[in-house]
Amino acid sequence: MAILVTGGSGFVGVHTSVELLNAGYDIVMFDNFSNSKPEALKRVYEITNKNFRFYEMDMRDKEKLEVVFSENTIDAVIHLAGLKAVGESVHMPLKYYDNNIHGTITLIEMMKKYNVKKLVFSSSATVYGLQSIVPISENFSLEATNPYGRSKLMIEEILRDLYISDDEWGIIPLRYFNPIGAHESGLIGESPNGVPNNLMPYITQVASGKLKEMLVFGNNYPTPDGTGVRDYIHVTDLALGHVKAIERLMAGVTGVNAYNLGTGRGYSVLELIETFEEVSGRKIPYTIVDRRPGDVAICYADPTKAKDELGWAAQRGIEEMCIDAWRWQINNPNGYESVLELERSWV
């Protein structure tokens, strides 16, 4: 029996795979490497010293997906595969709807065919849209404001309809807040193609000299320092949330139950920069620019439901997130394209 991890070589995928293997699960992975590198898979083996099966494929390819299910006894699926850049989704909505929604439907159809009815779905806090109240709990209204978020929300609705049609399904959408950091080994981390879309890899690349400066979008929000406040969660804590979700499904729980994965605390952009400067000893130059349309002042999770029902809570603080992200950056200045021997003299 094995857990299938779709998008297994991505940022969340490799960290989740490591924690699944460390917890004693057998895993099968696939990815099309659209935003990841094969080198990441070697690092997973190096960390865990455990074998796993990997397929290079797109989840919309029914023939290759059939091979995955026919060659392996899959007991549950963690579905991470999908396009995830909010800005790109605004300019290329059809690409996002085709990949994320079409791909998920193809996957679900194959799961039905092979009677695999346990699914953990990688959702997002973007399904909540622009909320004016914090912390955000799972019973808040769902009102995504961009194609990426809407693709996640549409998939959640599809999964709810799927359960209505067949109550044997156990489905857990995990609504991520802002995953940052890297594995403590420095072997796996966030390796974006081109200029990073996310805040932490932008900070680390400025710190390393790869980028000139940070752009901070707005300093006139109603927050203590005027910059936007977000809930940052260590990617290892996020990965462990997937393990807890699998444990719940393996216990026979059915239905569709969504959970926030966040720390329950918000940090401003400048707080994150300042903390990173303290732990790294590097100065992060930044320029204040105009707000981005649609950005809210404050957004952080209420993670109570995950604690009560999954037995999960984030353990790592903002300092550890910054330390681990910096370790990853200095050991891998070009992401997974760099295979330099680990340096540990920076601490």
Rank of each mutant, 00 (worst) to 15 (best):
V5C: 08
V5H: 05
T16H: 05
N22F: 11
M29G: 03
S34N: 05
N35D: 10
A40I: 00
L41S: 05
L41M: 09
R43Q: 15
E46R: 07
T48R: 07
R60D: 06
K62V: 13
N72V: 01
D75P: 03
A76K: 13
V77L: 02
G82C: 13
S89T: 10
V90I: 14
H91A: 09
H91W: 02
M92K: 15
L94H: 13
L94G: 03
K95G: 06
Y96R: 00
N100P: 04
G103A: 08
T104R: 01
T106C: 06
M111K: 10
N115I: 10
S123F: 04
G129Q: 06
S132H: 06
V134Y: 06
P147Y: 01
G149I: 08
L159P: 00
E168F: 01
I172K: 05
P179E: 08
P179W: 05
H183S: 10
L187F: 00
E190T: 03
N193T: 14
G194A: 11
Q205M: 12
S208H: 11
S208T: 10
K210R: 15
K212V: 07
P222D: 14
P224T: 05
G226K: 03
R230Y: 03
D231M: 00
V243Q: 14
A245D: 11
A251R: 14
V253I: 14
N260K: 07
G262E: 00
T263K: 07
T263L: 10
G266Y: 09
L270I: 11
L272W: 00
L272S: 02
T275V: 14
E278Y: 12
G281W: 03
K283T: 14
T287D: 12
T287L: 12
I288P: 02
G294Y: 09
V296W: 04
T304D: 06
K305W: 03
E309M: 09
E309N: 09
W312N: 12
A313S: 02
A325I: 01
N331W: 06
G335A: 07
E337W: 03
L340E: 11
